[in-house]
Amino acid sequence: MSTIAVAKKDFRDAVRSRLLIGLTALFALFTVGGAALASWASELFSEGGGDSTVGLILALQTPAGFLVPVIALIVGYGAIAGERESGSLKFLLGLPHRRRDVVLGKVLGRTGVVAVSILIGFAVGLVGLVAFVGEVSPVDYLAFTLVTVGFGFVYVCLGVGISAMTRSTTKAAVGAIGLVVLFWFLWGTITQGLLYALEGEFLPETFPGWYLALNAIPPDAAYGSAIGAVLGESGFTTAGSLESQGLVESVPLVAEPWFGFVILAVWALLPLALGLWRFERADL
């Protein structure tokens, strides 16, 4: 009850942010661009008709994969630290809310905000797809949207979790940027480095299971896995695309597409639990 009250208030407050409106517009622009790209690609790969799945990937997954984490982290990193810094947290916690109500309410409210941004971006993308490609499977489209909202939720949890651990928005921002650097750049580099160290080459004849598993762990890879699972396509994951090229002996459990949902759940709950634990014990 209390969580919902906080979530509603937070949604109202955060959805009016100019920055969010700007990011949503940018997102919509990218999905339209993606749709145009999809139409060009479908002409390239197939005669007439157009491939609805390729269209979805280009029009929706590519921009969402980059912009949803950015939007969610921007929306999330100040959620708690910002209110601690400004002092408005004392207004919020002066009312009968538990600290955990505040954290969970923030996660819900800001996920709502990110969901609005995604829905707007995808709606514009859908218009683009229909205009450029001509046909889209509504079931695939809906599944795609739901998984992407879930992906947004995971990054909101990461952002709010970091935000709950510190009283400084600067530190929270550094943490959020650190996450992006880790998941987008460092993780892949380290995995590649390990591969070279253990196998002696960057392109072995078959890729070992641990490599595939490590590659599947970042939330962005898990998002790809989860989409692969709901669309029944294997091309969305590293393991899947390597497998299709015959470079994999066996795919480990962690790299199975459905396991992406498990990984996403862990990435949502872990930072949240850590953030709550720190925040419950902190002096405001």
């Binding site: 109202r12 955060a14 002092g87 004392k90």
Partner: peptide, 12 residues
């Protein structure tokens, strides 16, 4: 409660 140095939600 009226906390010290009240800070409100700008957009509400």
């Amino acid at each position: 409660i009226l906390p010290e140095g009240v800070e409100l939600y700008e957009r509400l």
